[in-house]
Design a protein around this nucleic acid. Structure first.
Length: 569
RNA sequence: UGGGGUGUAGCCAAGCGGUAAGGCACUGGAUUUUGAUUCCAGCAUGCACAGGUUCGAAUCCUGUCACCCCAGCCA
């Protein structure tokens, strides 16, 4: 069975690790880390990184730490610390007892800053933020050295101590590395190591510190302190690698992880930047971080995506250094594959049209026995009551149609799924000419067997009107109308929000066995798609289903083609 | 000539000098009580472009072009 499994996905990072194992570079150890900043919820792009880091650790019999990169208390909070852990765990990964915070290392970080000063490799700079920017130069011109660059070790030491003691205002001074103001790499032009931040309460360290280390100083040291071997990050940190190495080369630490960069995920018809996700929430375009339309892990979870479908997605998209733009179809295909095999089937009528079976007794009903899965008997069966009055979907009836249309038409026959063949005898309309009811007859010889002498081409779903349960169904569609809503710098991505991203159906009728469905349960509503029971919304009134994804629909394609052909003429 | 990267099909992505894997999408066809699923077949004389090296180049060399990232006291 396992040999049937597709070839193991490899990537350039695994090749590097393979080489390192050959040469014994890290003593044949592999130790990675996933280092989120707790300033928002995790999204599908983080899932890529999580699967990469934890996946590599698993496959090389190594370890992966969860470390919160919490050096900027302005933006971070404990709600995010919690949600991130929930999401990583939900995705199926375990960091054991290795939950860390960069803030765990504040004391050691400070010690290394002192060491750099002692080595004349760091200095306290009194330039304002704006002056610092001017001194930095431009992409094509070298910067100028700060007038404070050559302070004595003693002066720097006492100034840094005073910064730490809270004697200076925010923005009045920073600690900087002394590297090279004429470096073509902007990151090496005496980068800031520490800044002053009064009056914020850090979620881990409270008010203990009023100076906070910068990412470029904190990250390499945190990695080294944890014994990380391969520090995987996204492409925009490529130019920071020389600074990462500089820090570790110039302090007394005997571990030097290797930073390797890969390209971040870009998913079409959505946005994956925390700033933009926050904007969607703030502008009330979505309900919150876990709105089922959001590309967040929490949103996908609420929507009904399974952890394994997201892991599969991460495998399928691969890991490289090239810019990418992944089609939604890839993600959708992953969840369909999972649910096709694992979701029990049910019948649900979204847009009910009443049908009276004229030759079925009024006072009678029968319990038909239907399989929960067409190919997997082990998923069991359930009872479906059948009676004189049923509902079918409006979309499954037309007064007349060409031969391609396989559903019910006037005087035509159609199979009711798991039940009888019916024939439409007449159509009843209201004053406005709207179809409100169908009169049909059923062929009682067609239960579980096809009629002899004629072919019934179509199969439609139905529910018994007297037994069905009313439910609300939320139909989700892509959040944006453009594949790359944030592709243009000049235009606002909010202009491309899809106004139809959520369509709420209040009066769907679902088969009675769904009455017992529990929160989070996933089903296939036959011929419609995959749905799950809403689990967290506060506005629930009775049964509420979220559409996870539609079924593939080749009929819709045919219809679309036909209508665009006629409209083109 | 600021620096750092990336270019293989519509979208991803293997490939690492021996004659273009795989997935998604798409197109045919078969089976089907879901227009689903499944199955079978098709889908790059071609690897950004131009030269060169070689018996042989997506892979090596030279040059060109396109796109992405960098001037936070954000990460």
């Amino acid at each position: 069975m396992d040999e049937q499994k597709k070839t193991v996905t490899t990537n350039f990072i695994r090749h590097i690790i393979d080489d390192d194992q050959q040469t014994g570079k890290f003593g044949n150890k592999v130790h990675t880390r996933f280092p989120p900043e707790p300033n928002g919820y995790l999204h599908i792009g983080h899932a890529k990184s999580i699967c990469l880091n934890f996946g590599i650790a698993r496959d090389y019999k190594g370890l992966c730490n969860l470390r919160f990169d919490d050096t900027n208390p302005h933006k971070e909070n404990i709600e995010f610390v919690q949600s991130i852990q929930d999401d990583v765990r939900w995705l199926g990964f375990d960091w054991g007892d290795r939950l860390f915070f960069s803030s765990d290392y504040f004391e050691q970080l400070y010690g290394f800053a002192v060491e750099l000063i002692n080595k004349k490799l760091a200095y306290v700079c009194d330039l304002s933020a704006e002056e610092t920017r001017e001194y930095r130069g431009t992409l094509k011109e070298a910067g100028r050295e700060s007038p404070y660059r050559n302070r004595t070790v003693e002066e720097n030491l006492s100034l840094l101590a005073a910064m730490k003691a809270g004697e200076f205002e925010d923005g009045s001074r920073v600690l900087r590395a002394k590297i090279d103001m004429s470096s073509p790499n902007m990151n090496m032009r005496d980068p800031t190591l520490y800044r002053i931040r009064h009056g914020v309460i850090h979620h881990q360290t409270g008010e203990e510190w009023c100076i906070y280390p910068m990412y470029d100083f904190t990250h390499p040291i945190s990695d080294a302190l944890e014994g990380i071997t391969h520090s995987l990050c996204t492409l925009e940190f490529e130019d920071h690698r020389s600074l990462y190495d500089w820090v570790l080369d110039n302090i007394s630490i005997d571990c030097h992880p290797q930073q390797i960069e890969f390209s971040r995920l870009n998913l079409q018809y959505t946005v994956l930047s925390k700033r933009k996700l926050i904007q969607l929430i703030d502008e009330k375009i979505v309900d919150g971080w876990d709105d089922p339309r959001m590309p967040t892990i929490a949103g996908l979870r609420r929507r009904g995506y399974t952890p394994s479908s997201i892991r599969e997605f991460a495998d399928r998209i691969g890991v490289t250094k090239s810019e990418n733009s992944i089609e939604m179809g890839v993600l959708e295909s992953c969840i369909r594959e999972d649910l096709e095999a694992n979701a029990p089937r049910r019948l649900a009528v979204l847009n009910p049209l009443k049908v009276i079976i004229e030759n079925y007794a009024d006072d009678q009903h029968e319990d038909l026995n239907a399989p929960n899965h067409p190919k997997d008997e082990e998923m069991g069966r359930r009872q479906m009551p059948f009676s004189r009055e049923i509902y079918i979907d409006h979309a499954d009836f037309r007064e007349s149609a060409n031969r391609k249309y396989k559903r019910l038409v006037t005087e035509g026959e159609v199979r009711l799924r798991n039940a009888y063949v019916i024939k439409c005898e007449s159509v009843i309309k209201d004053d406005k000419g709207e179809i409100i009811e169908l009169r049909c007859r059923y062929d009682k010889e067609t239960l579980g067997t096809n009629p002899v002498g004629r072919k019934v081409r179509g199969v439609i779903h139905w529910v018994s009107a007297g037994h069905a349960v009313k439910a609300e169904v939320r139909l989700y569609d892509r959040l944006f109308t453009q594949p790359t809503p944030d592709g243009s710098k000049n235009e606002n991505f909010l202009d491309y929000v899809n106004p139809g991203s959520l369509e709420t159906v209040k009066d769907a009728m679902v088969e009675p066995s769904l009455k017992d469905a529990k929160k989070g349960d996933r089903f296939q509503f036959e011929r419609e798609g995959y749905f799950n029971v809403e689990s967290t919304a506060s506005d629930i009134d009775g049964l509420v289903f979220n559409r996870i994804v539609t079924l593939r629909d080749s009929w819709a394609k045919i219809e679309q083609r036909a209508s665009s052909n006629t409209s083109n003429k």
